[in-house]
Amino acid sequence: MQLTNRSKQVSNKEMTLAEKMYLPAIVGGLAITISHFFRKKPTIQYPEVKKYLGPIYRGHHILKRDEQGRERCTACGLCAVACPAEAISMVAAERKKGEENLYREEKYAAVYEINMLRCIFCGLCEEACPKQAVYLRHDLMVPVFQERDEVIYGKDRLVENMNDRYIRVANSEVQATPTEPSLTRAAT
């Protein structure tokens, strides 16, 4: 089966004098390597320059609110069940009177924690969620942590901020806005 037309037939015929002298082949090889010397390098200088990773990148988790700013999560626990790394844990609570503008349904997650050391960013929680409450952002990564007590993310760091809502856009209009937006340069 011929896959490309670039394959070369091997032959064991006797070498000509030019081939035995090595020199023409050496000059040819040197020409090839020096042409690479002046070629544009594909390296992206990572911490300073970040590449747009696409609209389906799985980054930082977010607990969505609905249009009226109510939390969508009902603490059903399906994400925790789906999680292969057992990174998610939650405590459910019943909605009191007067909290209707805070939580969408009668049950809500009083505590919702993700252990970022355990999380493998597979996105199964996002798939399992029946209320479209948990998402993995495509535009933000979980920052590097130095201490172990920074590792467990609670609701304070997961619930969406209404002034800066997360929208997943499929076009390249939204460029990656990782930790330091000023240093970002899209290299798509």
Binding site: Q2, S7, Q9, S11, K13, T16, L17, A18, M21
Partner: peptide
């Protein structure tokens, strides 16, 4: 002399036969 020898030996060498794959 060496360049001449290279040219001659290159010209006299049998052509590489293309064996069908």
């Amino acid at each position: 002399v060496m360049v001449l020898m290279v040219i001659v030996s290159g010209a006299r060498a049998p052509k590489r036969e293309a064996i069908p794959q």
